[in-house]
């Protein structure tokens, strides 16, 4: 771990048990070269992913979150990923209003046999997060930026003495 300190970023992956987790395994068995920033959390279905998992992960300081499930029409539970697609798209569009770069989150579909596609997704997404650099948390907003935004907000809503 120490050799990678400062080089690795914290990326969390939520992967469907039936396709993408198998796809990641296929990539591993095939010994495809992959970046090591991603920490995988296996879930039963992309439809099991509450968008709040992703929001909490990002708000609490993760540098990136990647969600991957079965391709549409291939869901093990028939329609879980169709619901997921709507929720994840809504979340992706919601992030920027919170002050979180939407590029820190992506969702996609990888089947159990698509080891190469998995390699590509992980590589591209990790590069994308590295280009953005470590994430800032709301608590750590720079005092200068905070002062700038605050001065634009100060209202004058009260009676001053």
């Amino acid at each position: 771990m120490p050799v990678l300190t400062g080089k690795e970023l914290r990326i969390v992956g939520f992967l469907c048990n039936w396709c993408s987790y198998g796809g990641a395994d296929t990539a591993g068995v095939g010994r495809f070269n992959q970046p090591t920033d991603l920490r995988i959390i296996r879930v039963p279905c992309s439809g099991r992913i509450d968008p709040l998992f992703i929001a909490k992960t990002l708000i609490n300081g993760a540098d990136g979150v990647l969600v991957s499930g079965c391709h549409p029409r291939d869901c093990h539970y028939a329609e879980g990923n169709f619901y997921a697609r709507r929720r994840l798209e809504v979340l992706k569009r919601f992030l920027p209003i919170l002050g979180i770069d939407p590029a820190r989150f992506d969702y996609t579909w990888v089947s159990a046999s698509e080891g190469q596609r998995w390699q590509k997704v992980v590589t591209v997404f990790t590069e994308q997060i590295h280009a953005l650099g470590p994430a800032t948390r709301h608590e750590n907003v720079s005092p200068e930026l905070l002062a700038k935004v605050a001065s634009a907000i100060q209202g004058g809503n009260r009676v001053a003495a």
Partner: peptide
């Protein structure tokens, strides 16, 4: 007003208010 801000400014906005 929020739309007109940059993404980092919005982070500062919520930091300020929350």
């Amino acid at each position: 007003a929020l739309d007109a801000m940059s993404v980092p400014e919005r982070m500062a906005f919520w930091r300020y208010h929350m």
